[in-house]
Design a binder for these strands. Structure first.
Ligand SMILES: [Zn+2]
Ligand SMILES: [Zn+2]
Ligand SMILES: [Zn+2]
Ligand SMILES: [Zn+2]
Lengths: 161, 161
DNA sequence: CTAGTTATGTTATTTCATAACGCTGCGGGT
DNA sequence: ACCCGCAGCGTTATGAAATAACATAACTAG
């Protein structure tokens, strides 16, 4: 989305067609297992995130929500995002005020991101927080969640100017 | 600041009197060494951050800016914060949209925070990002900065309800 | 002094997020 | 079948956070 450069933002191509349908169906199945409801607005926002090539802002989702071009009302999208985050289907990237669909297998995981400051790509990776947990323990903190966002240049943007 | 509980937010008592003056003087000295200018608005915002018991929102700073109760204009404070962050005198906490003065000795360091979700305290600690750098290297990213914010309960809030 | 650069003052606007309230529809208990 | 409780949603309105744009002032180097 944030195309500050000319490089292809190809790191995370959006899903379409069968791949998209499969991803949504997997979310649907996971919801049924845990008695959660993937309602139409939630499903729609998840679709939009999965279709996107990169992080989407809340108001991008709001604008793209209606298939007929009608935008959603902000609470519709923010509520859906809250649900998707809670279930682990999406993540918020704090330093971008933006959202991405979860790209990792298995729910309930801890997320971390590599963010390209040139092309805007955001790649999720599996973090190792053992050093941080050790520091927290020394300080006496009981850690519940950890946000980690590394900013720099992706492989594509690193080579050229 | 965010007092969602009754526990004393004593982790980071604000500076006053001589301690405050010393901290500002140290920043002043460091600026002179690097030919940077600690101008009145910058100094004022730094003072406000140092005096505070916890993270301050930008609009808290705006409201508290004038000694006579006159608020600042938003750009005044945002510019000062940008400067203070650049010089390492302050940090932004992304997950709170708030700012803290740097509590670590020596400039140019990497910051990380333990944030209490009950009393709002934010404690800076020295992070070890070696595991994250390894992950970034595998992915081919050149990391420039890392944001790490661990959220949970501080020692004081952990014991009681 | 003069020109270039850095910082500030000011107005307005944009961007991001939530409060509040009533309606709907699904589920469990009787 | 009926009632009720609650999660979810639609809608209006507002609040909170950040920046754009442009004019003026203050340093600094030549
Ligand atoms: Zn994930
Ligand atoms: Zn890139
Ligand atoms: Zn610091
Ligand atoms: Zn606490």
């Amino acid at each position: 989305m944030g195309a500050e450069c000319h490089h292809a933002e190809s790191a995370q191509p959006g899903l379409e067609g069968v791949a998209l349908a499969n991803a949504v169906a997997a979310a649907q199945a996971q919801c049924e297992r845990t008695r959660e409801r993937l309602t139409p607005p939630r499903r729609r926002v998840l679709e939009l995130l999965l279709e996107s090539d990169g992080p989407m802002k809340a108001y991008d989702l709001i604008a793209a929500y209606g298939q007929d071009g009608e935008p959603a009302k902000p609470p519709t999208v923010y509520r859906a995002l809250e649900f998707l985050e809670r279930l682990g289907f999406a993540h918020r990237i704090e330093s971008l005020n933006a959202y991405v669909p979860c790209r990792m297998e298995g729910a309930g995981h801890r997320a971390a991101f590599l963010i390209c400051e040139c092309c805007g790509a955001a790649q999720e990776f599996e973090p190792d927080f053992s050093a941080q947990f050790a520091a927290a323990e020394i300080a006496g903190y009981a850690v519940r969640t950890v946000t980690l966002e590394a900013r720099g240049l992706c492989p594509a943007c690193k080579v050229q100017t």
